[in-house]
Each structure stands twice: as structure tokens, then as C-alpha cells.
Amino acid sequence: MIRTNQKALEKEVGADTSNELLIPGGMPVGIYLETEGALVLGTEGVTGEDGEEHEPAAHLVKEGDYIIALDDEEIKNKSQLIEAVAALESDDIVLTVLRNNQKIDIRMKAVRCERNEYKLGIWVRDNAQGLGTVTFLNADSQFGALGHGIRDTDTGQLLNAADGLLYTTSIKDIQKGENGTPGGMEGIIVYNNYNILGTIQENTSEGIYGKLDRVDTLFTDTTPMEPVLDESEVKEGEAVVHCAVSGSVKDYEIRITKVDENAKESNKKLQIEVTDKELLELTGGIVQGMSGSPIIQDNKIVGAVTHVFVNNPKEGYGIFIQDMLKHIE
């Protein structure tokens, strides 16, 4: 493969963005995503100073709400919520939550406990970490990855991202997928400033998107490719998936078994089957962490891997590349 860099890519990209060239990815990255506020996972009972059990948030705060303020004090994360509750001097409070993209003020009573402490009886979370695969990079250093959104593991809700970072990672181990048990890639991610690759600016149902600051660290030996922008050009038949499960990015043979332009979920419009013997030996097929690996057919980027069939890890779903490019301005 021909080594290229960002300047070379910019020269090859014309003024017509509909024909924009992309550098295909396939490299694993560490992901850190912070929510906008504190995500509510559920409510629970609290024992008050009267010895009675109270559940102050029941039927008021709902799973999936984002707490963004307490008594008009902005709440950006779980730590700020804990600090705000610790500073309460009265049990009469107003929580501001984001529910279905609408702000709602909820008046409730905090429970006064022993040692003059107050509790809300709400379980919350404020970040997500993991490993995924970069799909592409464009001439403006904008990247797309995963091909599906990052969702909360408990609620299944798409995380409302306020901020996020990409980190360098290396694959430590691979658990092979078996029928009924999806496999996975285990990576070593050190969350410090030295390992930051770029910023995540958007978390959508079609993937995560942002800006890469250290292009040469992630993209070293690869060639720009043309993306397929017309779904009708993608055909059932032979293709390859670009991924780094062996430690370096390689092409592995797959077969596109179905093209469904009318699928209800955009990241399930392609059905694929792994046919490459080496990849099957390494992973058993598609494993968690491979999401975002670009799918290439006739030397063009047509999409990315998104899901694995739990009962048959040789098969899975993919998303069209044009559905990912909609999120790139």
C-alpha cells in the first residue's frame, strides 16, 4: 500500500464534496464519552432519620432522564450532583431534567437521613468507556466510527453526549465468538493526555463522529478511497472488511449476503458473512470491538460492520457509508 498523509489526501479531494475521498480506517481506538448531565438509571428507597423507608423520586424521575440542574445550579456530571446534594440545607428541591429533549422541572422532597444528610434515592451514571473501530477519515480530519451509537448498558438508551475523547489502544486478547455467545476484543487503554487522539463531538444511532488531532499516530499506511454514495451500487457478493484484529490492519474476505435499502434501522441495511479462514480462526467471525470496520467492495468503501448475529458469529449487519457521511458537515 502507498503511504499517504493529510496533505496528499487534500490534493486528491476535489471541490465537489459528493466525490470526496476518504481514508479507510480499521484501527481500534479507546472511547471515553461523557453525558450531558447525570443519566438516571432508576430510583430506590431511602431510610430517613425517622427510621421509615421513603422513595422520594418514585413516579417523578424516570429511567433515561438526564439531571441537568438542582435548584437552578447546573449539573454536568455525577460528581457535581453528589456535591450539590451534599450541600442541601432544605428538603424542598427542584430537579431540572432533560426528557425526550425537553426540559422539565420536578419539585420533590429530599430525604433527611442521619448526620443531617439528604438523599434523593436516584441511581445515576455520567460516562461510558470502551473500545471500537474507526471507519474513515476525511480531508478535514473528521472521522466516523462504530456505525452505531453508544447506548447505556442498563437503559439501552442512546447516550446524550456532552463531550468525548478518542485514545490510542492496543489489542491484548480476543475472545472468539461462539453460537449464543458473542466474542470480543480486549484492549489496553490508558486514559491520560498523552494518549488522546482526538475529540468526539457527536454520538448518533449511526455512529460517533468528531475531529482527529493526531492523524499520523492512527493513520500510517493507507490509501484514500472513493466512497459509494448510491446504495444501488452495493451488490450481494464478495467484499472485504478492513480491520486490525491481528495487530495490524488487513483485508479479510467477507460476503454481502443481503442489501436492504428499506430496513427500519439504518445500521442493519447490509447483511454480511465472514468467509475468510484466517479471520474465522482468530475471532470466530464478528466480535465486539469490530464495529466500525470499513466494508470495501470493488475498491470502494461501501459501509461498515455494526452488529453480530449472537447465534451465528460468522454473520452480522452493516451500515451504508452514505448513512454515516450524513453526520459529517
Rank of each mutant, 00 (worst) to 15 (best):
G121R: 02
T168Q: 08
T133M: 07
L120K: 00
G184W: 06
R151A: 07
L166C: 11
G147D: 03
S79W: 05
S90M: 00
D92M: 10
G64M: 12
R115F: 03
S170D: 15
G130D: 10
V97E: 09
I174T: 15
G177W: 04
E63H: 04
Q102K: 11
F143I: 04
S170W: 06
A162D: 09
E178M: 08
L146K: 02
T133G: 12
L98E: 14
N195E: 15
I189P: 08
G180Y: 10
I68W: 02
I75C: 05
D92F: 06
Y118S: 02
D126I: 01
A87D: 15
N195Y: 06
Q142Y: 04
G198I: 01
T153L: 14
T155F: 02
D154E: 09
R107N: 13
A84H: 12
A162Q: 14
A139V: 01
R99S: 12
N193S: 15
N160W: 03
I122Y: 05
A145V: 01
A145I: 02
G156M: 08
G147N: 09
A128C: 05
A69M: 03
E83N: 07
K172W: 09
T96G: 10
D126G: 14
A86E: 12
V124Y: 00
N100W: 11
V97C: 00
G132K: 08
S90E: 13
D72H: 12
V111E: 00
Q142G: 08
D140L: 07
T181L: 13
G198Y: 11
R112I: 01
C113D: 01
C113A: 03
M185E: 06
I171K: 09
A110V: 03
R115W: 04
L165A: 06
I67A: 03
A110E: 05
S79D: 15
L197T: 10
A139M: 03
N100E: 14
G183C: 08
D173W: 12
K76T: 13
A128Y: 07
A84F: 08
K172M: 09
D140F: 04
I188A: 08
D126R: 01
F136V: 08
G147A: 05
L137F: 06
L166D: 12
A84C: 12
D126V: 01
T133N: 06
I104D: 02
W123D: 09
G164V: 09
Y194M: 14
Y194F: 11
G187L: 03
G64D: 10
T169A: 14
S141R: 14
I189E: 08
V85C: 12
G156I: 04
H148R: 11
A110H: 00
A161T: 15
E114Y: 02
G144W: 15
D154T: 15
Q142F: 02
M108D: 11
I150Q: 08
Y191I: 00
D126M: 00
Y118T: 14
G149P: 02
D105C: 05
A162T: 04
A161S: 14
